[in-house]
Amino acid sequence: MAVTETVADLPGTPVTGLAKKDLLDMESLSKEEIKLILDTADSLKDVARHPIKKVPTLRGRTVVNLFYEVSTRTRTSFELAAARLSADVVNINVATSSVAKGETLLDTARTLEAMSVDFIVMRHSCSGAPHILARNLDASVINAGDGWHEHPTQALLDLYTVRDKLGSIEGKTITLIGDLKHSRVARSNLIGFKKMGARVRFCGPPTLLSDGFRDLGAEVFHELKPALDGADIVYILRLQFERHRQGLLPSVKYYTRHYGVTAERVKWAKPGALIMHPGPMNRGVEIAPDVADGPQSVIVEQVFNGVAVRMAVLYLLEVRRAKGER
């Protein structure tokens, strides 16, 4: 394990859990809370190596995965995280649920709560949808991606991976490349990496990256070479092909020619810079296959760490819930 900057190196340090009952965005987490989540994930990662990959911590708790958008990896990651903590997991496939029959978001949620659900993990195409649920329910709501707004657990697992690999986040430079404008992953990472003291650069074509991000603390680049100069982390976003259909890109080929990350272009960043991607990848479009599979790539680690980070979020929310009940 790499050297990490932990809040609590002494064994048995008491934790108070998180300040809020929900995890909705990186915006509302303090630097200390982020550190606590990463430190907790560090220990929970160990459960995956037990002969029995399960601990009884959330026995008798129910987690509902309420996904209004398709997702395989995030949903599976949350499902495994809950299962490793011994919670019961219900997956709601919206296409076959009563939502298809016209039920409102709030009615669906109240129905779930009437069935004594403790955690709702939610993905929705509308920004702010999880916030509406959180305000109206006693259950803890975890945002698994809302519109173009945020995807906090993705940012947390990315922060974890960087800290694990580089030893610290503070002072590092991360360059995110792609469709920044429509990316909740980019927004959450911008907020998270800034909070932890990193420099954040955004690089993409002007149609997919507005100058407004400067106000949020990002350095904006439209050319790849200067954006990668001195970068410790090269973070490649997935290109949605519909951007081409929407007229935001002349062609996918144009994108690859200017922004596709190849082995040659990786050399523009710091030697040994980390290559990251939230998945699923379009090989040969935004990332060359030899970069995705190369020695600098930590894309597989991101997936592995995602389960531990989501376990940490569930655990710390449960600590707060259990305290509140007494």
Binding site: T13, P14, L85
Partner: peptide, 14 residues
């Protein structure tokens, strides 16, 4: 992670 009192005696797991 095996305690029966997660809320009252929560610690940073090691």
């Amino acid at each position: 992670l095996y305690r029966d009192d997660v809320g009252t005696k929560a610690k940073l797991p090691k």
